[in-house]
Design a protein around this nucleic acid. Structure first.
Length: 584
RNA sequence: GCGCCCGUAGCUCAGCAGGAUAGAGCAUCAGAUUCCUAAUCUGGGGGCCAUGGGUUCGAAUCCCGUCGGGCGCACCA
C-alpha cells in the first residue's frame, strides 16, 4: 500500500477530539455526547483564521450549557495543541484557530515528500468499489448524450482510487436484446449492399448510420454471398455476434478519445448463456420473492387499448419500496431487461464490497426495482445487503443554433462524441462535464462550445500549471533550483498559497465520500486563481516576483513553493483525467 | 395522474452532509503589460437563493404545500 500523507484537517480534528476528552475527564463536559456533526474546516472568511470548528455549538445543547461558555473552555484547551498560535471564540460560538507559520512550512514539505501521492487518502481502506458507467447499447458510436455519464463515471472512479479504494471500472454490454437483432438486420442490408446489390433507402426500423457500411463490407469479404438469400434464422446469430463486436470496437475507440478505459466488459449474452438469470430466479422463487402473477396495466396518461392481462413471473419489488412488482421474463419465456439485469448485479456484487452505477436520467424510473433486487439478492439469509448506489446523471440537451436537437440512432441524427472531441479536445470536454453537479440538467450547444472553448476554465487551470513550469524553467536558466532548506524565507502572503493547496486532501476525501468529482474541478480553479493573483502582485512589486535574481536563496525558496503548487494542480488534474500543460 | 431530478446575479454555474456579511466565470463599466507567458490581475454595478409555511441557537442547504422546467411511468433497452 502506498504511503498516505497526513491530512492537516484530520490531524486537527484529532486535536479537537483530544481537547474534548480532557474536558470530559475534568468533569467540565458530560461524557458520551454525539460528536458526529463536529467539523474542522477553513472558515469562509480567511480573516477569521486558518481552521474553524463548530464543536461548541453542536455540543452546547446536549451538554446543557451555552455555546460561548463551552467554546471558551475548549479554546483554552486548543491553545495548548501543537502548532496553534491563537484560538478565538467568535460569533455564535465558533472557535477559530490560527496556526503558526511553521505548520504551513511543514505542510509545504509534506506536499513535496508525498509528491504524486499528495491528496491520496486511506479513507477507503482498500475496499473494492465496482463503478459501472457508460454501458451504452452496442448499436453505434457514442453520442454526446452519453458523454456526461462517461466522464463523470471515469472521474469518480479515479477519485475513489485516490481516496483509498480499489476500483473496478465496468461496462455492461447489452448484447442480448431485440435491438441487437435490429442491428444485425441493418448490417445484413449493408452486407448485401457490399456485394453489389442496390438496397436503396434504409427501411424504417433499421439503423441507417454510415458506420455500418464497413461492417457489411467486412462480412461480405468474410462470407462471400452465402448468406444473401438464406432465411434470417441462418445468419442472424453470426451477424449479431459480428455486429456487436464491431460496435464495441467503435465504442472502445470513442472512449479512448476521452482517455476512458474499462477493466471489465460484462456481456449480457454470456451471462444468460451461463444460466445466471435462471439461478437467480430459482433462488428468488425459493425465497418467495418471485411469483407468477398478473402485471398491472400501464399507468400512463393514455391507457393502451390493446392491453391484455398476462401471467408472468414477477419480482416482489413492492416489498422493497417499488410501486409495483416487475416481470423478469416475457410471455415467450425470454428474459426481460430487468430479469437479466438483476442477475448481472448479483454477479457484480460478488466482485466488490460496494457497487456504484452511473445512469442517465432516462433510466431513473427503474432505479427502485434494481435497488430492490440487489437488496433482496445480497441481503437475505442474515447478510447485510451490499452497499449499492445509483448516481443519476441528468440529460445533456443537445442544442443547435438555440434549437434542441432530437437525437436517435434510429434516425441517424446525432452528434457523436468523436466529433466533439475532435473539435474542442478531450480536456475541454472533460472539464466542461465536470464543472457542474451531475444531477442538474445542462444544455450542450455544439457551436457554442466550440466557439467558447477558448474561455473554458480548463485553460485557466492549465495556464496556472504552465506558468509554474515556465517559472521553473526560467529559474533553471538563472541557475537557481527549488530548495526546501530555504523555505523559512517564505512570508505570510506566500504561505497563503500553501494554505489553499493544503485543502486538497480534504477536498479529495469529501468529494469521494459524496461521489462528486466536480468538487475537485472547482478546487483546482480556486487554487489557480490564488496563484494567478499572487503572480500579478509581482507586476506592481518586482520584489514579490518568484524570481529575484539578486536574492538566490529567496528565489530558491519561492521556486520550491511554486513547484509544489504545480504538484497539487497536477494531482488534481490527474483525478479528473485532464492533462497538465507544460505550456499553452 | 404517479415517481425521480432541478429552480441561486442579465447568461452559465459553485455554495464544501445546517454555520459567520450568499460566491465565481461570461456579459457590462473603470483600471493594470519597459515585468518570471495579459489565455492574467485589481475595482464598480448587478440577488425577496421560484414561492408559502415548518423544524432550531442558525436554513440557499432539512421537512410539507404551491408554481415552473426536465426525465420517466412496456413483456422496450
Amino acid at each position: 500500500m502506498t504511503h498516505t500523507p497526513a491530512n492537516l484537517f484530520a490531524t486537527y480534528t484529532g486535536h479537537i477530539a483530544a481537547a474534548l476528552d480532557r474536558l470530559e475527564a475534568a468533569g467540565s463536559l458530560p461524557g458520551g455526547l454525539n460528536r458526529a456533526n463536529i467539523t474542522c474546516e477553513p472558515p469562509r472568511d480567511p480573516a477569521h483564521g486558518d481552521l474553524s470548528t463548530n464543536a461548541a455549538m453542536v455540543l452546547a445543547k446536549p451538554a446543557g450549557t451555552n455555546p460561548r461558555a463551552l467554546a471558551e473552555m475548549l479554546a483554552v484547551e486548543l491553545r495548548a495543541a501543537p502548532g496553534v498560535e491563537a484560538a478565538e471564540v467568535a460569533g455564535p460560538g465558533f472557535i477559530n484557530l490560527r496556526l503558526v507559520d511553521a505548520a504551513w512550512r511543514d505542510e509545504l514539505r509534506a506536499i513535496a515528500e508525498a509528491g504524486d501521492a499528495y491528496g491520496r487518502s486511506d479513507m477507503g481502506a482498500g475496499t473494492t468499489v465496482n463503478v459501472e458507467y457508460v454501458s451504452t447499447n452496442p448499436t453505434g458510436p457514442i453520442h454526446m448524450g452519453h458523454c456526461r455519464g462517461a466522464v463523470v463515471g471515469d472521474a469518480l472512479a479515479s477519485l475513489l482510487e485516490a481516496a483509498g479504494h480499489t476500483v473496478i471500472r465496468e461496462y455492461y454490454v447489452n448484447d442480448a436484446g431485440g435491438q441487437v437483432d435490429v442491428l444485425a438486420r441493418s448490417v445484413h442490408l449493408r452486407y448485401r449492399e457490399a456485394l453489389g446489390e442496390d438496397v436503396g433507402e434504409v427501411p424504417e426500423g433499421l439503423y441507417p448510420g454510415d458506420y455500418l457500411v464497413p461492417v457489411g463490407q467486412a462480412l461480405a469479404q468474410l462470407y462471400g454471398d452465402r448468406f444473401v438469400s438464406l432465411p434470417e434464422a441462418e445468419w442472424l446469430g453470426d451477424f449479431r455476434k459480428a455486429s456487436v463486436a464491431a460496435m464495441m470496437k467503435i465504442i472502445r475507440h470513442d472512449l479512448s478519445l476521452l482517455g476512458i478505459k474499462h477493466d471489465v466488459f460484462a456481456s449480457e449474452a454470456e451471462l444468460q448463456a451461463a444460466g445466471k438469470p435462471d439461478a437467480a430466479e430459482a433462488w428468488l422463487r425459493a425465497h418467495d420473492l418471485v411469483y407468477d402473477g398478473v402485471l398491472e396495466a400501464p399507468k400512463g396518461k393514455t391507457p393502451d387499448e390493446d392491453w391484455e392481462p398476462v401471467i408472468l413471473p414477477l419480482f416482489r419489488s413492492t416489498k422493497f419500496g417499488d410501486d409495483q412488482d416487475r416481470p423478469i421474463r416475457k410471455s415467450d419465456g425470454s428474459w426481460t431487461y430487468f430479469g437479466a439485469d438483476l442477475a448481472y448485479h448479483f454477479q457484480k456484487a460478488q466482485s466488490a464490497d460496494a457497487l456504484v452505477d452511473i445512469w442517465g436520467a432516462d433510466h431513473a424510473g427503474t432505479v427502485k426495482r434494481i435497488r430492490a433486487a440487489v437488496a433482496a439478492l445480497t441481503g437475505a439469509d442474515g447478510h447485510t445487503a451490499k452497499p449499492f448506489e445509483i448516481k443519476i446523471v441528468q440529460m445533456v440537451q443537445l442544442m443547435r443554433n438555440g434549437e434542441p436537437v432530437k437525437m436517435s440512432k434510429r434516425s441517424g441524427n446525432f452528434v457523436t462524441l468523436a466529433d466533439v472531441v475532435e473539435e474542442v479536445g478531450k480536456n475541454v470536454v472533460r472539464f466542461t462535464m465536470l464543472t457542474r453537479k451531475p444531477e442538474a440538467q445542462m444544455d450542450f450547444d455544439f457551436a457554442k462550445v466550440v466557439e467558447a472553448s477558448k474561455d473554458n476554465p480548463v485553460f485557466y487551470v492549465q495556464y496556472c500549471h504552465a506558468r509554474v513550469r515556465s517559472t521553473l524553467r526560467k529559474g533553471a536558466v538563472e541557475g537557481i533550483m527549488p530548495d526546501v532548506s530555504a523555505i523559512d524565507r517564505l512570508e505570510t502572503d506566500e504561505l497563503a498559497l500553501v494554505k489553499l493547496a493544503a485543502q486538497f486532501p480534504r477536498v479529495v476525501e469529501s468529494a469521494a465520500a459524496a461521489r462528486e468529482p466536480h468538487r475537485v474541478a472547482f478546487f483546482l480553479y480556486d487554487l489557480a486563481a490564488g496563484f494567478h493573483a499572487h503572480w500579478n502582485v509581482g507586476n506592481d512589486s518586482p520584489g514579490k516576483r518568484f524570481i529575484v535574481t539578486q536574492d538566490r536563496q529567496l528565489t530558491a525558496a519561492r521556486l520550491f513553493l511554486v513547484s509544489q503548487i504545480g504538484q497539487v494542480i497536477r494531482n488534481g488534474l490527474a483525478i479528473l483525467g485532464v492533462e497538465a500543460a507544460e505550456e499553452l
